[in-house]
Design a protein around this nucleic acid. Structure first.
Lengths: 295, 295
DNA sequence: CTCGCCATTTTGGCTAGACATAAGCGTTCC
DNA sequence: GGAACGCTTATGTCTAGCCAAAATGGCGAG
């Protein structure tokens, strides 16, 4: 994961319909189980013996110490080494391990807790929260990851890709005034072969030098951009639209059926980088977010 | 605003179509103006003389000092006394004013900055960010507020309201197993007389004692519940659905047209409080969120 | 007049403590 | 056996300072 791909808390996760073979040991049809806090609460006492070793935790030496600690802790959480319910080392242990002060460790942990990756309770400790992995806290929603997490096989197909220069309408969409070159493309993302997302995208070639249609035949534009282009700001807009002919064909849905459309604009400083319009078959796909009151 | 209505960062704001008479002095049709940072950046130097008085800032004596400071600061921001671009007092001034340490002030300001209400820059200071007011950071989205902020006149109409007891389907929706009494209702929210949201709601009467249909004829269920019932957890689900006969009639849209549906579940501890399904005319209404990478 | 440098201001980060609070857990005393 | 008590532990909050980094604004040299 590149540094540029880390983003601040988005308490919204896209949920994709269950794959053919769901994960085994799970209570079925308990609607309340979709909410985190109760499970976590019981887990706090149940699993408190699950501790982890401090050994592999290393600072990477770049940036403030508290952000380094934050990364060191978030890594095993996000890649699944620390299962939900796992108790992480106590502040005092981390302080000793990293040779820093407790306040610095505290800041790192608090920030992760604020984003919902961790849950803290006095005397008990800090545990990895349920669905910590489901939260795309650090990444800009990456469809491949979302599909993979749902247990399905990810697929990708580039439908159209071309450079455009003299298209005032598209330039206006990205709000680039000078006649900069733009890349325009359409692609679909598949889950077990079924289309789950159609992506229309406009890329400012000036901001993303080196982009061409060739690599995009293999790798989706999202990951490519994340790996090659830094960003400082993003904006998401969610709306409901009816599927036109193009969308209906790509998503294999009925013409005019309701679609959930996420529009994502990204900037690097003041220069627009890309505009992506992501179409999802309406009722099946949902965006879910959880939160608590500020005490 | 009751204490129970404060929620943690939801970087998503619902945007309602512009009212008939938009606010006066505003550049029209500048697409880039929909993104915050550029404007704020120029504003940082332009308006830095705009300082505010420390005088009215008071601690309310309840809870940790940093949360008291947080409230003291967020109040004038959210109610509009401090316009976007306003420079708030420096940490050292606040420290002196509140007779506390700089770290405590810092924690309060940092938490507000993390949620996007404030923007900080070294040497320059801390300013109220553009669209700080548009962000429903503290409140559960309250339609009346959203409409009012857009400059339109808010209206409300209760369509249906009744107590239900023996309806397994509705009980399953709220996931209440025992035969607790439920209140079921439908209502519409209007902006300048035009429907902007149809609300279907199920309330657990055990969790919201005293609720009846009478007050709800005047005051919308959202505000009523916020004022009378505490909550500890909420979940939002967003999807796109086609308008059925009921929705089409209430929203005055064509049958089958795409609607943006926000489903909100609320719990108080482990007991489900309410389930609201909020229908918006699809393409006009959007949910917008902005964020930055974690450095 | 312009350029570059430096002082000042404000936030960013960090430290090493302190006491408070919640909660688990064991002990003691009925 | 069970209730009450208190010890221990981990986090929550707070303090009073330190130096660093960024950016502004002014000053002085060319």
């Amino acid at each position: 994961m590149s540094a540029a791909s880390r983003g601040r808390a988005i308490p919204l996760a896209i949920v994709i319909p269950k794959p053919v073979a769901p994960r085994s040991d799970q209570e079925p049809s308990d609607a309340r189980a979709t909410a985190a806090s109760h499970l976590d609460r019981t887990m706090l006492s149940a699993n408190r013996k699950d501790s982890v070793s401090l050994e592999p935790l290393r600072l990477d030496g770049s940036g403030p110490i508290w952000l380094q600690i934050r990364r060191a802790l978030s890594q095993p959480i996000l890649n699944g080494d620390w299962r939900p319910g796992t108790r992480i080392p106590a502040e005092m242990d981390l302080k000793a391990h990293f040779q820093t002060s407790r306040m610095t460790v505290n800041k790192a942990i608090q920030s992760l807790a604020a984003e919902g990756l961790l849950q803290r309770r006095r005397k008990v400790g800090t545990i990895v929260s349920e669905r910590a992995q489901e939260r795309p806290v650090f990444e800009i929603w990456n469809t491949a990851d979302v599909v993979a997490r749902s247990g399905a096989e990810y697929g990708y197909r580039l439908l159209e890709c071309e450079f455009v220069r003299d298209d005032p309408e598209k330039r206006a969409l990205l709000n680039v005034t000078r006649s900069t070159q733009l890349l325009w493309l359409r692609c679909v993302h598949l889950s077990n072969g079924r289309p789950v997302q159609m992506e229309e995208r406009l890329v400012n070639v000036d901001a993303a030098p080196g982009i061409t249609c060739e690599p995009l035949a293999q790798v989706a534009p999202g990951p490519w951009l994340l790996a090659h282009v830094p960003w400082t700001e993003a904006e998401h807009t969610i709306s409901a639209c009816e599927a036109g002919p193009l969308e209906a064909a790509a998503l294999e849905v009925r013409l005019g059926s309701a679609c959930l459309v996420v529009e994502r604009r990204t900037w690097n400083g003041d220069v627009p980088v890309t505009l992506a319009r992501l179409w999802h078959p309406g009722a099946e796909h949902r965006l879910v977010g959880r939160f608590e009151p500020q005490r």
